[in-house]
Write a protein that binds this DNA or RNA. Sequence first.
DNA 1: TGTAAGTAAATAAACATTTACTTACTTTGT
DNA 2: ACAAAGTAAGTAAATGTTTATTTACTTACA
Lengths: 198, 198
Amino acid sequence: MRPKNLEKEQAIRTIALRIIAEEGLENLSMQKLAKAANISPRTIYIKYENKEDLLIRLYIEEVLEAYEAAILVKFDETMDFAEGVKRLWLNAFAYFKNNRHAFALIRYGKSSPLLNKAFQKANIKEGQFFAPILRFLKLQVAAGIIKDFPFDVQRALLFSPVIDLVAEYFDYKDRPKQIITEKTMLACCEVVIKGMLK
Amino acid sequence: MRPKNLEKEQAIRTIALRIIAEEGLENLSMQKLAKAANISPRTIYIKYENKEDLLIRLYIEEVLEAYEAAILVKFDETMDFAEGVKRLWLNAFAYFKNNRHAFALIRYGKSSPLLNKAFQKANIKEGQFFAPILRFLKLQVAAGIIKDFPFDVQRALLFSPVIDLVAEYFDYKDRPKQIITEKTMLACCEVVIKGMLK
DNA sequence: TGTAAGTAAATAAACATTTACTTACTTTGT
DNA sequence: ACAAAGTAAGTAAATGTTTATTTACTTACA
């Protein structure tokens, strides 16, 4: 049996992400993708059931899982609160800086109903994305260090500025002076930490 | 001369927003929109140059401008810091609660390159969206009440959790217990304010 | 009655997906 | 050691549908 060409599989994913980031999810078509990846449209259908399957697996397997892995590097749920949050912020910043296209799809994950539903489904099925962060925060609440909110609320308070700040980072990339540096991120992270402490 | 039917114009906008919110921006087509609004596709082209023009004006004129107006109700740039931020948070929460479809397009505004560029262009041309908030924050910095960050950074720190919390509000709408209430929003707002104070 | 608003139907291009075929590699019998 | 068979991976081209937009006509009102 002829073996799968893994380079082609990776090309499909890489180029799909690039098209989504540069032209938008609404402008990604199977034929455009095939042409850009220098393959036949049929080849995409060997690896993916259909367009929906491609998008969902691109989002979950290629982007979310890699993002989760990157964010948890050198993170440990028993860390000190401020240290733990700073580690997560810096990991996220570093990951997105090097994965602009993945960042674009992460943003679509919050707007597109298709990806949003896929995320919720995967989140239920595979335990929970970012489970170590959930346990980390539970420990902090139990120790009386931070205020007690539902997890989803804590996540919004602690991490939603990261996404907006990374967006600013990319906005300022083609301007004379970058205002979002690792130093800025750390200063912002401290603001968020201060607010959250009891 | 036959006069324009303003009801049809409004139907186009309302139904376009509904399709985007329910099926996604990538599933809005001119023909589907015309059929849902019970008009001929040609009618859309009397009011809008093309699909791009429709989307951009829907985003800027129908959603962003209404959002800006709603958020600034009873807000005054000379307000006390905590009072001002709370007012903005509660106004945003109230507006989105009653305008779920507008909320969906606001989210697309951050992911879709088309809408994102349109926003930046409009923001430069028409002075600045949310200019009173910019001046409000400048006053607070000058008075030594809050930390001095670039405006875009301050905006991320003070307001990005609102969007995520509203998303949670809608998520919890079809579950037995709502966790995002006005009280939750106020508690979160206080967390953010505390972090920002000098 | 003149005219822009509106319609129904048409156009050509692009779309997701399939058909019919070829290629390249593994397995198997010698 | 090796060639021929079997097979999934891959291709080029076609399928029928949907797309954005236009054409040619009708309607309603100043």
